[in-house]
């Protein structure tokens, strides 16, 4: 391996090698992660409802998702007559575009990050906003009432929950005094941010907002199947539908990984190597998202928006001020 790496560096140079390797690994990981998470979700759902979940294909159904994936690739791409052709076709393509970018700035292991950017956290949140735009394109382009309603809900929900989410991110950035993801992990060498009182509160708000931002139950109103068929992706079939799912499950992992980096000390942990801890912590958070989905009933839409604007945002803002005060106090004591 080391020999091969040396040859690559000889041929391509340092930066290009790291970038190409990073992108290849990221794309591979995105596929693997989605396959694994879809299987995990069905298993978790099954066991929480006293069922077994998929059991047929492979031991405990572990290659069920691969079979489903092959089925989806082989399916016909149906384009209804009255759709807005450009938006309808572009939406599932653009939805995957910002996804690999976020991985470039995640520090996964001591000293291992593809692009050590000094405003890394902004890159992730800057590009994640494109997600809403694609939902809008899909929902509006489908020329379907249910899709449009789903898209409108998605937009309202994302605007509402992005505010408290970003305020908690600012809180963590303030505590770490850097927008660089590696520096944020470094700042948590003595104590993880979640173990401070203000950090714990910020983490709670982050978790709730992140659930809403990734359109997961109990906040999955954009695709509430009992009222909107399937929301913004009602008209999509085959691989186009699969693209939305790929993006959704990868976004779940990204949001968990960001949470781990900001609040749970990133790759820090005893005995095991860094990237194992990073993956372990991220998947624990992902599991919590699955757990929420099969535990809480879906909320009503006015409750959802009211909760974001009237409860989460004020608490997050007060918490930000308290954190600022605490940092100043700690500085004074030292």
């Amino acid at each position: 391996m080391a020999d091969l790496y040396q040859k690559l560096v000889m041929l391509l140079g340092d930066d290009l090698t790291v970038l190409i390797l990073g992108i290849v690994l990221t794309l591979g990981f995105i596929q693997f992660n989605s396959l694994f998470l879809i299987w995990l979700e069905r298993k978790v759902a099954g066991h929480m409802q006293l069922r077994l979940g998929p059991m047929e294909v492979g031991p405990h159904g572990i290659i069920q998702t691969i079979a489903d994936g092959i089925k989806l690739v082989g399916k016909q791409l149906i384009t209804p007559r009255y759709v807005d052709k450009w938006l309808f076709m572009l939406a599932p393509v653009i939805v995957l575009m910002p996804v690999p970018l976020a991985f470039l700035v995640l520090p996964v292991h001591p000293g291992v990050v593809v692009l050590d950017m000094n405003v890394g956290i902004l890159l992730i949140f800057g590009f994640s906003t494109l997600n809403v735009l694609t939902i809008l394109m899909a929902g509006w382009g489908s020329h379907n009432k249910y899709s449009l309603l789903g898209a409108i809900r998605a937009v309202a929900q994302n605007i509402a929950y992005e505010s408290p989410l970003l305020v908690t991110v600012i809180t963590a950035v303030l505590w770490a005094r850097s927008l660089n993801m590696s520096a944020i992990v470094d700042a948590q060498d003595k104590i993880w941010f979640v173990f401070t009182p203000w950090g714990a509160l910020a983490f709670l708000i982050f978790l709730i907002s992140a659930t809403a931002e990734t359109n997961r139950a109990p906040f999955d109103l954009p695709e509430a199947e009992s009222e909107l068929v399937a929301g913004f992706h009602t008209e999509y079939s085959g691989m186009r539908f699969a693209m939305f799912f790929l993006a959704e499950y990868t976004n779940m992992f990204i949001v968990s990984a960001v949470g781990v980096t900001l609040f749970l000390g990133g790759w820090r942990g005893p005995i095991l190597p860094g990237f194992i801890w990073f993956l372990l912590k991220s998947y624990v958070l992902v599991f919590m998202f699955l757990w929420f989905r099969w535990t809480f009933p879906r909320v009503r839409f006015d409750q959802l928006l009211g909760f974001a604007w009237k409860v989460l945002l004020p608490i997050a803002l007060v918490n930000l001020v308290v954190t600022g005060g605490a940092i100043k106090l700690i500085d004074l004591i030292r």
Binding site: V119, G126, L130, V132, W140, I152, I159, L179
Partner: peptide
């Protein structure tokens, strides 16, 4: 890059989406 991502976050992410929302409603 700071300004670039702020542009994305505020203009692409918030402003155009708010405009669309207003149009849809």
């Amino acid at each position: 890059p700071f300004l670039a991502f702020m542009e994305l976050l505020i203009y692409v992410g918030a402003i155009t989406i708010t405009i669309t929302f207003a149009i849809m409603l």
